[in-house]
Every structure is written in structure tokens, then in C-alpha cells.
């Protein structure tokens, strides 16, 4: 069943993109409504996962532009259930969690298209080719957007570290 197979993935994407559970729940519901309405149009020669992610990506970016989520604050990172990082020692685990928290908050500094490219590539673990198909963009553009997103997030981390060190 579609809900069993895809709901968690779509909800995660919506949550990572919007940053709040409330928005993510609304978006997931709207994406599934669109999915059921568009199923008849699905071309069976296409990859269903990529097709669904394209539908989700279009909806999320359209809503982002319509409602300007970037002005809203994201949920506290503590609310995001972390995967256990058992391979790290307690000190490293704390530092890594701190970095994740900053990166999570740093997403608000990224534009919609760059944010989506980074989420698909680095969190959802898609290949550049898959991201290009989902976002309907040339491969070079996707690589450039992912790099820009990572650099922007790294700069956010740098600024915060400098502030903490009193520089």
C-alpha cells in the first residue's frame, strides 16, 4: 500500500524541508491527496519513486514560495529524533549532535531550490543523477546547487564557532 511504503519518506522530506512538524504533516497530507488524484496520469515507463519525489518537491517548493516559510523558525532540533551514533565516544557524539543542530538551523539560510538539492543528495542519499531527474535540472546545475548549499551551511557553522570563541 502506498501509505505504508512512502509516508515516512515523504514526511521526512517535508519535515527536513519545512523544519516544523505542523507544516510537514499538512504538506504530507496534501502531497498524498495530489498523489491519489494524479495516479491515473502516471506513466508506467517512469520510475515511480522519482515521479513521487518530483510531485512532492514541486508541492513543497510551490508552498514555500507562496507562504514564505523562511521567515518562520524551525522546530528545536531535540524534537528531531536522532539516529544513535554508537560508533562515536560520548564527547564526539555531543559535538556531532551540536553540529547537526547548527546545520538543521542553518537550513533557513538556504533558498528553496538549494535546500531541496542538499536534502535529496545528503540526507535522502540520492545520487546526483537521481536528484537531477527529481528536480528536472541539468546534472551540472544540481552539482553546483549542492556545493553552494554545503558551502553556505559550512559558513553558518564557521560564523557560529567564531561567535562562540569570541572572535
Amino acid at each position: 500500500m502506498l501509505v505504508n511504503t512512502y509516508s515516512r519518506r515523504i514526511f521526512s522530506l517535508s519535515y527536513q524541508f519545512s523544519g516544523t512538524r505542523e507544516e510537514a504533516e499538512d504538506m504530507t497530507q496534501e502531497i498524498f491527496l495530489k498523489l491519489y488524484n494524479s495516479l491515473k496520469k502516471f506513466d508506467f515507463s517512469r520510475n515511480f519513486d522519482a515521479w513521487l519525489l518530483t510531485l512532492a518537491r514541486n508541492h513543497l517548493i510551490d508552498e514555500y514560495r507562496r507562504t514564505k516559510w523562511e521567515k518562520k523558525t524551525r522546530d528545536e532540533f531535540d524534537e528531531y529524533r536522532l539516529k544513535e551514533t554508537t560508533e562515536l565516544g560520548p564527547e564526539d557524539a555531543i559535538l556531532r549532535e551540536e553540529t547537526k543542530k547548527r546545520v538543521w538551523e542553518g537550513f533557513n539560510h538556504l533558498s528553496a531550490d538549494i535546500r531541496m538539492a542538499v536534502i535529496l543528495r545528503d540526507i535522502q542519499g540520492k545520487t546526483y543523477e537521481e536528484v537531477a531527474e527529481i528536480m528536472d535540472l541539468p546534472l551540472g546545475t544540481v552539482k553546483s546547487r549542492v556545493n553552494r548549499g554545503r558551502v553556505q551551511l559550512a559558513k553558518v557553522l564557521k560564523e557560529q564557532k567564531e561567535k562562540e570563541n569570541g572572535m
Binding site: 521526512s12 529524533r81 536522532l82 553540529t99 542519499g125 559558513k155
Partner: peptide, 26 residues
């Protein structure tokens, strides 16, 4: 920092979906 960013992003988990939302989707 870019490498640190990429490594931490790779460890972001899938978010847990609530029962209430699942019911609405069904």
C-alpha cells in the same frame, strides 16, 4: 566544516510519523 556538514547530514534520520497523520493518510 564542509566535510563535517556533509557527514552530519548523512546521519540525519528519517523523521518519525505520528499515528494521527497515518490515520488521516489511510
Amino acid at each position: 566544516l564542509l566535510r563535517e556538514t556533509q557527514e552530519s547530514l548523512a546521519e540525519f534520520p528519517q523523521a518519525e510519523i505520528s499515528e494521527a497523520l497515518l490515520e488521516r493518510l489511510y
